[in-house]
């Protein structure tokens, strides 16, 4: 159905007058409506829990997920990352920390400590903690982060203050970690701040800069000692086994000699006895034969032979005996 053409329509005055305020009226209402929608839900990420307060009073704890709340400041929601492992660094800082309390403003101050034997050491460590009770974390201590920092620094300085510098630097490290954690946990239980300290780990622990060299010196000296001992042992091992071998050799030689000596003696004796048996059958002629045989063998080998008449023995002093081979056959 179409309206008849050219029909003038009287726009009522009231309508014209009302059109502007009406828009003014609905626009804020719409805004309020949008605000109501936006402000009446919130999401809690999986690593967090949210503490909901109604008129400031603790109302409930919201698990991860989508939740509704009353807007206009009636319900306030604070999210606390309770499933996240949090970390505080002491004496050093690594960049890119998401936890605002992780680093301190003055790591140099935190690092330097006095040990129980009144030496100094530089200690770097971390604390791993997590929030176990979001309610207590929010409501019991105003600045839980700095408070935790202070308590940890205090615990560590107390524990280090009861250790010698050698315990701090080397032998007592694990004990220090455990002891500092224990002390800290005690403080935390007293404060009831909803935080659980899980682990304290010592990172770099070293003597202060000017002293470092003398600590290295000790290590070097220790190495030198080992080296000296090793060298001496080497010398011992080079000489003694050889000497033992040589001694055995000499003894074996002597034993060989002994066997040889006895065998030879027995051989000689057997031979002698055989000869003797023959000799006893005809002593005179055997003797003569042996004598002549020997002479026959020996005399041709002699360099010089001088045969003197028994009465010409005074000739002897005149002979030139210094020459090994005198004029042959003087008396021949």
């Amino acid at each position: 159905m179409q309206p008849p053409p050219f029909k003038t329509v009287d726009i009522p005055r009231s309508y014209q007058w009302n059109s502007l305020p009406k828009a003014l009226l609905y626009a804020p209402l719409a805004l309020v409506a949008i605000y109501c929608v936006v402000a009446s839900y919130y999401t809690v990420s999986p690593e967090s829990e949210a503490v909901v307060q109604r008129f400031g009073k603790f109302h409930t704890i919201a698990e991860p997920g989508l939740h509704f709340k009353i807007p206009f400041g009636v319900d306030t929601v604070t999210k606390v990352p309770i499933r996240r492992q949090l970390k505080l660094e002491f004496g050093f800082e690594t960049s890119g920390a998401t936890n605002p309390d992780q680093d301190s403003e003055s790591p140099e101050l935190e690092r330097s400590m006095v040990t129980g034997d009144l030496n100094a050491a530089e200690v770097e460590w971390i604390l791993q903690y997590s929030i176990v009770s979001p309610k207590e974390y929010l409501f019991s201590v105003r600045h839980p982060g700095p408070t935790l920092r202070d308590l940890t620094a205090s615990s560590m300085s107390e524990v280090v203050g009861d250790r010698t510098v050698d315990e701090v630097l080397t032998i007592g490290r694990t004990e220090i970690e455990a002891e500092a954690l224990k002390t800290l946990q005690q403080h935390l239980t007293n404060l009831n701040m909803g935080v659980r300290a899980e682990q304290i780990q010592l990172k770099n622990v070293h003597p202060p800069g000017p002293v470092q060299r003398s600590f290295d010196e000790v290590n070097r000296a220790q190495q030198e000692r080992e080296q000296m001992i090793n060298e001496a042992n080497g010398e011992y091992n080079r000489v003694i086994p050889k000497a033992r071998g040589l001694a055995d050799q000499r003894i074996s030689g002597a034993e060989g000699y002994a066997v040889q000596r006895v065998n030879e003696a027995e051989g000689d004796v057997v031979r002698f006895k055989e000869q003797l048996a023959q000799y006893e059958k005809a002593p005179a002629i055997t003797k003569q034969r042996l004598y002549l045989e020997t002479m026959n063998e020996v005399l041709p080998q002699l360099g010089g032979k001088v045969i003197l008449d028994e009465k010409a023995s005074q000739f002897l002093p005149l002979m030139n005996l210094s020459s090994p081979t005198p004029a042959p056959a003087v008396g021949r």
Binding site: P283, Y291, T294, L299, G303, K305, T325, P326
Partner: peptide, 29 residues
């Protein structure tokens, strides 16, 4: 007899071992 024979043979052996080229022996008749 054994002792005597030993002395005798040993003396001969000694002659055999000690008298060499560089030895000048002087005998009397």
């Amino acid at each position: 007899a054994a002792a005597d024979f030993y002395q005798f043979t040993k003396t001969l052996e000694t002659y055999r071992n000690t008298l060499r080229k560089d030895t000048t022996a002087i005998f009397t008749t």
